[in-house]
Design a binder for these strands. Sequence first.
DNA 1: ATGACGGAGCGTCTCCGA
Length: 259
Amino acid sequence: MRIATWNVNSIGPRLPRVLDWLGSAQPDVLCLQELKSGTDAFPFDAVKELGYETAAYGIGRWNGVAILSRVGLEDVTRGLTGEPTFEDKTDARAIGATCGGLRLWSVYVPNGRDLENPHYGYKLAWLSALEATVREEQARGLPFAVLGDFNIAPTDADVWDIGVFAESTHVTEPERKALAALRDLGLSDVFPRPLKYDHPFTYWDYRAGNFPNNKGMRIDLVYADAVVAGAVTDSYVDREARKGKGPSDHAPIVVDLSL
DNA sequence: ATGACGGAGCGTCTCCGA
């Protein structure tokens, strides 16, 4: 079984690439983030032609998540338990479903913007709700994993130059402690292979030639329980999908499982 | 070439992303 996650930075302009990638990578399940579309605007028919059912959750211009599956898609849950709002609005940042006997979540953790911004507090509150949701979800007794854009670099090695990130979000102790809380629940970080260079970055800013210069970050993560993590036969960041004209600024992560 | 921001929306600019 092959599962994958990809922040596509808007499903509209990225649809041709997503369809091509589904055809070449052949994932059984693909978790998407940053749809930037409403639920109803998701291109359900186009992916169905490739054999995928879709559970989408979008509110329009910002955020939005989905799960595509060709191995079944049941018991869909939208949003977290006790999910906080930002400026009294609920974002579409988390969706869970049962696919091929696995309980999988696609998440898009809030950015945080900067340390003085209310969005940073929202990010930490959102991560607490994620922890509570994981705790509840584990009671289902199914093999479990959370995949997505966590907007956190777990270690200093997960950014190209930690000196650039002084006083920045994504690398702070409270954010990293939120990841540690997930590990305390029995989840582990499925560390992917890079296809080039020595570190598996998953995001490179569009600006300043960051991708060709490999100034990247590892902020897209797969957090899996012991059953799923123990079944991993391979995992890699598909940086080929970051190349060329009109890419997302994130690359997909592929995880192969022998369950 | 991997190649030097891009997406969305009441929109020729601003917000957002990380």
